[in-house]
Nucleic acid binder design. Sequence first.
RNA 1: GUGGGUGUAGCUCAGUUGGUUAGAGCACCAGAUUGUGGCUCUGGUGGCCGUGGGUUCAAAUCCCAUCACCCACCCCA
Length: 421
Amino acid sequence: MRFQKIKGTRDILPEEIGRWQAAEKQIQQVMARFGFSEIRPPIFEETELFARSIGQLTDIVSKEMYTFLDRGDKSLTLRPELTAGVVRAFIENNLGKKQPLNKLYYLCPVFRQENPQAGRLRQFHQFGAEILGSAEPAADVEAIALSIAIYRAFQLDRFVVKLNSVGDAVCREPYKQKLREYLRPRLDRLCKTCQQRFEKNPLRILDCKETGCRTETAEAPKLADSLCDDCARHFGRVQQLLDAAGMKYELDFRLVRGLDYYTRTAYEIVSDQLGAQDALCGGGRYDLLVEELGGEPTPAVGFAAGMERLLMALDKIGWQPAANPPAMIFLAPLGEAAVLWAVQTAQQLRQQGLTVEIDLLNRGLKAQLREANRQQARFAVIVGDNELKAGHAAVRDLTTSQQNDVLLAELISYLQKACTN
RNA sequence: GUGGGUGUAGCUCAGUUGGUUAGAGCACCAGAUUGUGGCUCUGGUGGCCGUGGGUUCAAAUCCCAUCACCCACCCCA
């Protein structure tokens, strides 16, 4: 029986881990520049946390969660996104009481049981940020600016920021009614799923990709025109601030984010380089969620972005992480006495902070040098019985093919000097 | 959950209308150089042809099922 990985999961192999680490580092740097601190909630939580925050009716909760019972018959779920866990941690650790504003970010795996396709996996990675405690439009703009800055830091600029407002508790329900009234006479011309959405979730009809539904909704009343005064003012101010800061965006009245907790600002960053799943990043404001999960009323705004999708887009533009690995020393011992010497010497060199490889396969010299070359070693140190007897090692510079005898007693200081320039 | 496509060596792929022992390039190992890498040449290791059934004298090739991957729908990052 040969085991294989679970459908929709991937092994990140040594040959690609460099890209991941470089991308992670870049993201962490930009997050830090914006004053965000990392938070790492647990990978699983009570099922109810996700059901309550994301919404029972959403696809994520109704059919995509990895849910299981633990030995105490408690229902647990592998996180399908991070906001719920971050908000839970925010409440449980009283972060809101320690300071008025919390700016948090994360970068970690999430799980959704969907059928895989380009840009979609069952275990994938999201990075994102949450600003908890501010209802100001400037906070919305801070989140948007941060996500844009991250993509720009990678020299990635073929993306579009789509912006909308989904209103709040005051104006969303009346708008839904207005939308239903508009659509009721056209109901039979909508697709099957939209007909089901009509009662419970009419906003989603705007988002439908069926051309029939799109033509029916093209002239429908727009949420942005039906906002209450507070929401309208907020939305206007967000746009004003974005304009002032020179951030380009497109208003998209069809943009209604899939998760229930969004209020007011909703935005998405899409790329034309990704295929059907083109969203790099999605986010918005969720002013009611903290209270809904049992905390003090706390306005908040944030975004989540797909790590794999970022990497896909980076592949398309030919991004290469800068790599300058330290000079490497390959110890090539021949014979048992030399191996003993090499193990001791490797220990000493490594304690000096040098990068050292030592042959572990008891290979011949030719094979060892081939290996050293394959690993792009800077120096090969050749030691056999002859060298031990003579008290020196043959140090071969693999870039110039120069080879010198170096006294064993002076080897460490010699290599230290040679590797620093 | 649904639809289409694809599974042959570590990797990328050939493989004729079913017909002997399933091939190439790269990678790996060895030799040319009995202790010297890269370049070159020569040779070699490596495959239950995704898995399980079926048809046939004969299956990598045809049929069915199943698993996985790719792409798409739904939806989302």
